[in-house]
């Protein structure tokens, strides 16, 4: 048990910071379209070139370093399908190159990255299917929740059945979503802390009022809890750890979304202010998370033989 980065992890963090400063961040996201962005192929290419997207070896059960890389990308508001590549791909029999969309069996409707996806990973109750290439062009959907989204109406039935346990893939999908939510929630919380520290009303900093302090402290506790559960889940890779991390991330998102906007006041309503770039993404991630099967229910059922 060790909560500190080792030398390799510190080196990765530093190299990631350099790359993300150049190729990600709020300014980059605005260049891509802000809350309705296009896919960031450029960022993906740079991450690929530097070897970050293959940081977890194929077949490796421990994807902690991959989760740390994803957290950094999400904190920098990166707009590429990296979490499936970093966290799910090592469980697949063959490498995937290029953007992938991950959906639940029977999914019909908008899906993140579907416009640019070279393949779909369809997670069912009994199996996992790999659909590639996509047979039709996918129409773009305007969601304004911070991600490129495409309308998936005709997911082909057959295609390739992957010889892998669907619960394993669902677990890694959940861990990926949890750590993505953590990165975005950290961005929103940090931004809000900065805002209420600078913003003065009643002749004092807003952040000096205890009501706001307590609200933000609870946000921090929630995000820290989700963060460490997600990193631990990436270490173990078990369905229980994955469901716990995502459940807690969703609970955290409920308070972070509401409170950061509340405390930033009308500034939080504006496109000019960066808050929405992170918070709206969190909402989209939560929707995607629930669509994979409610994690809280899954967690409860994993622990006990519950009948309802």
């Amino acid at each position: 048990m060790d909560f500190h980065l080792n030398d390799d992890q510190s080196a990765i963090r530093d190299a990631m910071a350099t790359l993300l400063t150049r190729h990600a961040g709020a300014t980059r996201l605005r260049h891509l379209g802000g809350d309705d962005p296009t896919y960031d192929h450029d960022l993906e290419r740079h991450l690929e070139g530097a070897g970050f997207l293959d940081i977890a070896e194929a077949g490796s059960a421990n994807r902690l370093d991959a989760a740390l890389v994803q957290e950094a990308i999400s904190l920098a508001l990166g707009t590429a399908a990296t979490s499936s590549r970093l966290l799910i791909a090592p469980s697949l029999p063959e490498a995937i190159k290029g953007p992938v969309s991950v959906v639940a069996e029977g999914h019909r409707g908008p899906a993140r990255f579907a416009t640019d996806a070279v393949a779909l990973i369809v997670i069912g109750q009994r199996d996992v299917r790999f659909v590639a290439p996509l047979p039709l062009s996918v129409e773009r959907v305007v969601s304004r929740l911070g991600w490129p989204v495409g309308q998936l109406d005709d997911v082909p039935e057959g295609d390739v059945m992957i010889d892998v346990d669907p619960e394993e893939i669902r677990a890694w999908a959940r861990i990926g979503l949890a750590i993505e939510m953590v990165g975005a929630m950290r961005f929103a919380t940090d931004l809000t802390v900065g805002y209420v520290t600078d913003r003065k009303q009643f002749n004092r900093a807003l952040g000096s009022f205890q009501a706001l302090q307590h609200g933000l402290a609870e946000c921090a506790v929630a995000v820290e809890g989700a963060r460490w559960l997600s990193l631990e889940a990436a270490h173990y890779g078990t369905p229980q750890a994955a469901a716990a991390a995502l459940t807690h991330a969703i609970q955290a998102s409920k308070i972070v979304f509401g409170r950061t906007h509340q405390y930033c006041g009308a500034m939080g309503f504006t496109q000019e202010f960066d808050l929405h770039l992170a918070t709206m993404r969190v909402v989209a991630l939560r929707a995607e998370a629930e669509a994979l099967g409610r994690p809280a229910t899954a967690l409860a059922r994993q622990g006990w033989a519950l009948h309802s």
């Binding site: 809890g225 989700a226 460490w228 559960l229 469901a243 716990a244 991390a245 459940t247 807690h248 609970q251 409610r294 994690p295 809280a296 229910t297 899954a298 967690l299 409860a300 059922r301 622990g303 006990w304 519950l306 309802s308």
Partner: peptide
Amino acid sequence: AVEAIGVAKAACEAA
């Protein structure tokens, strides 16, 4: 109740 159990269990794990 099942949902509440999951949320509570996750909170224990976070603690």
